[in-house]
C-alpha cells in the first residue's frame, strides 16, 4: 500500500506542475486565479498522502483543514477585489445593495 500512495503522490505532483502552466501563462487574470485554486485543491490531497506516507495522518489532517480554508478564502478575496473595482466605476448606483 505504501508504494501505491507514493505513486499517487508523485502523479499529483506532476499534475500540479502542468496546472502551473495555466497559472503562469494564462491569457487572463482569471485563468491564473483558477490555476491557483486547482493547485490548492491538489496540494490538500498531496498533504494527506504525505501524512499517510509518514504514518502520521492525525497531524497532517489539521494542516489540510487549514489549507482547504485558506485556499477558499484566497479565491474569494481576490475575486472580491474585482467586485469593488466595478463599484467605484461609472455604474456605482445600480450595484449598491
Amino acid at each position: 500500500m505504501h508504494a501505491v500512495f507514493l505513486a499517487a503522490g508523485i502523479f499529483i505532483f506532476f499534475l500540479m506542475l502542468l496546472t502551473l502552466y495555466r497559472g503562469i501563462h494564462g491569457p487572463l487574470i482569471f485563468d491564473r486565479i483558477l490555476g491557483g485554486n486547482m493547485i490548492g485543491t491538489k496540494a490538500m490531497i498531496l498533504l494527506l498522502i504525505i501524512g499517510v506516507l509518514h504514518n502520521n495522518l492525525s497531524m497532517f489532517v489539521d494542516i489540510a483543514i487549514a489549507y482547504a480554508m485558506l485556499n477558499f478564502i484566497t479565491t474569494l478575496g481576490v475575486t472580491r477585489l474585482f467586485f469593488r473595482k466595478r463599484s467605484i466605476s461609472d455604474t456605482a448606483q445600480e450595484d449598491d445593495q
Partner: peptide, 14 residues
C-alpha cells in the same frame, strides 16, 4: 462550487 461561481461572476463583471 462557490469559488467557481465567484471567479465566473468576477469575469462577467469585468
Amino acid at each position: 462550487p462557490t469559488a467557481t461561481h465567484a471567479i465566473s461572476q468576477a469575469a462577467l463583471i469585468i
